[in-house]
Amino acid sequence: MNARLVVVAVGVGLSVAGCNVAGSRLPDPHLSGRDAQYMALVPTADVGAAYERYLVDFKTSEPPGSIVVDTKNKFLYFVEGGGKAIRYGVATGQEAYGWTGRATIGGMQEWPRWIPPKDMLERWPHLQPTADAGGLPGGPDNPLGSRALYLHEGGKDTLYRIHGTNEPDKIGQSVSSGCIRMRDIDAIDLYNRVKLGANVVVI
């Protein structure tokens, strides 16, 4: 999902724990209804201890409720305040499609419909029938996974997303077209915590 590349020098005052597991492992959110039904069908993968969900020490100037994405180390932090954050493992954009900058959460969807964007159709024409059909409905086979957070800049959709994935084995890698992918269970957990309009910093 490519859009205008915006590179912003961000003064985040960031303290990153790297690949060390130094924090408290957090339990999975309770699932019911459609979440329980679909999550029983989504692919699973062992992402390794470093990319599980932890409450960690985290120093940043960003306010509580913000999201900070460390693309180099493949971590997403949800800022809790008090020097703490919840850390999730993520997959980020390939070098040619990486995105950095500041945004806000301009939209939030559960089990979102996926419509291949124009630049993706140019690279992979075999997806055109999916676009012509109005996209792929939300579900366990959808590449956006369980949740999508839509990143906006200046009130406009950047076309970048923080979303779940039907390829959890790719967590910890640079594989996407610029979006930030999370395990579906982590995308649900983050969705339950974040608010519309929250700040997002991708570094």
Rank of each mutant, 00 (worst) to 15 (best):
N2I: 07
L5Y: 00
L5I: 04
V7L: 10
G11C: 00
L14M: 04
G18D: 07
N20V: 03
H30C: 00
H30Q: 06
H30S: 03
D35M: 03
Q37G: 00
A40L: 13
L41Q: 15
T44S: 15
D46R: 12
G48E: 03
A49E: 14
A49N: 04
A49L: 08
Y51S: 01
E52G: 09
Y54G: 06
Y54I: 13
L55W: 05
K59I: 02
S61H: 11
I67P: 00
V69Y: 03
D70T: 08
D70W: 13
K72W: 08
N73Q: 13
K74W: 02
F75K: 04
L76R: 11
L76I: 11
F78H: 15
V79A: 11
V79Y: 05
E80W: 14
G82E: 15
G82W: 11
I86M: 13
Y88N: 06
Y88E: 08
G89S: 01
G93K: 04
Q94N: 05
Y97N: 11
Y97V: 05
T100I: 09
G101I: 11
G101S: 04
G101Q: 08
R102V: 07
T104L: 00
G106W: 05
R113H: 07
W114Y: 07
P116C: 08
P117K: 03
M120S: 06
R123L: 15
P125T: 05
P125K: 02
L127E: 06
T130G: 08
T130M: 15
A131G: 12
A133C: 14
G135L: 14
P137M: 06
G139R: 11
P140V: 14
P140R: 13
P140F: 06
N142L: 06
L149F: 10
L151E: 05
H152F: 14
G154P: 00
G154S: 07
K156N: 11
T158D: 02
H163Y: 05
H163C: 04
G164C: 06
T165I: 02
I171S: 07
I171E: 08
S174G: 10
S174K: 12
S177T: 01
C179F: 03
I180W: 05
R181F: 01
M182G: 05
R183W: 03
D184W: 09
D184V: 13
I185W: 08
D186L: 10
D186P: 12
L190S: 05
R193M: 14
G197K: 09
G197I: 10
V200M: 08
V201N: 02
